[in-house]
Computed example of a mutant assay.
Amino acid sequence: MSGDHPDPCAVNSLVETPGCSPVEGRVVWDPIHSIWNGGMLAGALVLGPLTVSPGAAAVFAITTGAGLLLGHSVGFHRRLIHGSFKCPLWLEHVLVWVGTAVGMSGPFWMIRTHDLRDWAQRQADCHDYLAHRRPMLIDAVWQMHCRLKLMHPPAFDLGRVGRDRFYRLLERTWMLQQVPIAAGLYLMGGWGFVVWGVCARVAASVSGHWFVGHLAHRRGPQSWLVEGAGVQAHDVPWAAIPTMGEAWHNNHHAFPGSARIGLYPGQSDWGYRFIRLLERLGLAWDVRTPETMGDRKVLVPAKP
C-alpha cells in the first residue's frame, strides 16, 4: 500500500499480475500533460522576458525552491510514495498539496508513474521509455508529452492514500490548484509575479525533473549496483541543491525507503534536513535511514 509498506525497499502501490511485463508496449501522446506542460513552457518563454523584474525573479526562486523541497521531495517522494517517515495526517495533507502545486500532476498519477518506473527498472529488462535509454531529445518528448501503454501492465493498489477524499480531490483538480496561487501572486505584484510564480515555476520544475531523471539513468558516479536490475542509477552531483537531495539517485536506488538520500560526506540533502527539523519539533517520527533498514542483499559496491 502506498506510503505505509512494512518493507522499506518495496514498490509500494504496484501489484504484479500474472504475465505482467515492463518490456512490450507503445508510447502514445498524453494530451492533458502535453498541453499543460507545453502551455506553461510557452508562457514562460514568451511572457517571461516581458515581465521580468527583481521581484518576479525572487518569487520564482522562492516558490520553486519551496515547492520542490516541501512538496515534491518531502511530501510526494519521501512521505507519500516511500513512507520513509511518519507525520500527522494534517501535515501530510499540507505537504502533498504543496507537491500537487508544483504542477507536474496529481498525487495518484505521481505515485503510479513513480512506482511503475521503479518496478520496471528492477527487472532484467524494460521498455526504453522506463529506462530513459533513448537520446535526450526523444526522451524529453516522451517523458513530458507522452505516456507508455504496456501490453501486459501490472495493477495498482493505492491503499489508504487512494481512499483519502482530500487526495481524490487533488487528483481531479491538480491543474486548478494554480488558480489561488496565481490570484495571490497577482495581488502581490501583478502579471509579472503570475508569469514567474506560476508559468516559469511549473515549466522549470517539470523540465528539471525530466532532465535530472534522464541523466541519473545514463551517466555519473555510482557507489552501489543492484544485482538483477536491468537499469542502474547514477548520482548527479551538480543538481543536489536544486533537487533538495534527490539527485543522489544511485543512493536512492540502493536504499529506496530511506528518508536520507545524501548519504556520504559532502552530499547535500535539504529534504532530509527538513525532515530532521520536523522530527525535532515532534512532527515526524520513525524516520528511516540505511542504518535502521537492515542489510539489502542485492547490493554490491560499484567499481571505482
Rank of each mutant, 00 (worst) to 15 (best):
Leu45Ala: 14
Leu70Tyr: 13
Ala58Cys: 12
Arg288Asp: 05
Tyr167Trp: 10
Ser268Val: 15
Pro54Arg: 14
Asp164Ala: 09
Arg168Phe: 04
Phe255His: 14
Pro54Cys: 09
Ala61Ile: 05
Glu16Pro: 01
His249Arg: 05
Leu225Ile: 14
Phe255Tyr: 15
Leu278Met: 12
Trp29Lys: 09
Ala61Met: 12
Lys149Trp: 13
Asp125Leu: 10
Leu95Trp: 13
Met136His: 07
Ile32Trp: 11
Leu169Asp: 01
Ala66His: 03
Gly294Glu: 13
Pro18Tyr: 11
Val231Met: 02
Gly55Ala: 15
Trp196Ser: 04
Ser34Arg: 08
Gly99Leu: 06
Leu91Trp: 08
Leu47Phe: 14
Gly262Arg: 09
Glu291Ile: 04
Gly159Trp: 08
Ala259Ile: 10
Gln222Val: 05
Pro154Ser: 13
Asp30Ile: 01
His152Glu: 15
Gly99Arg: 07
Trp174Pro: 01
Leu281Pro: 00
Gly39Pro: 04
Gly220Met: 08
Val226Gln: 08
Val96His: 04
Ala183Val: 15
Thr292Asp: 07
Asp269Phe: 04
Val202Ala: 03
Ala57Leu: 15
Thr63Leu: 15
Ser258Thr: 08
Tyr129Ile: 03
Arg201Gly: 00
Gln177Val: 15
Val161Cys: 03
Trp248Ile: 12
Asp118Met: 00
Leu50Gln: 15
Met136Thr: 04
Ser84Met: 10
Ala101Val: 14
Ala233Asn: 10
Leu45Cys: 14
Pro290His: 13
Asp125Ser: 15
Pro88Val: 09
Ala216Gly: 14
Ala204Asn: 03
Gly262Glu: 10
Asp164Ile: 08
Asp157Leu: 03
Trp238Met: 11
Asp118Lys: 00
Gly220Glu: 05
Gly39Lys: 04
Met144Val: 12
Ala58Asn: 05
Arg260Gly: 05
His93Asn: 14
Leu47Ile: 04
Phe60Tyr: 15
Ala204Gly: 08
Asp157Glu: 14
Gly220Ser: 07
Tyr272Ala: 12
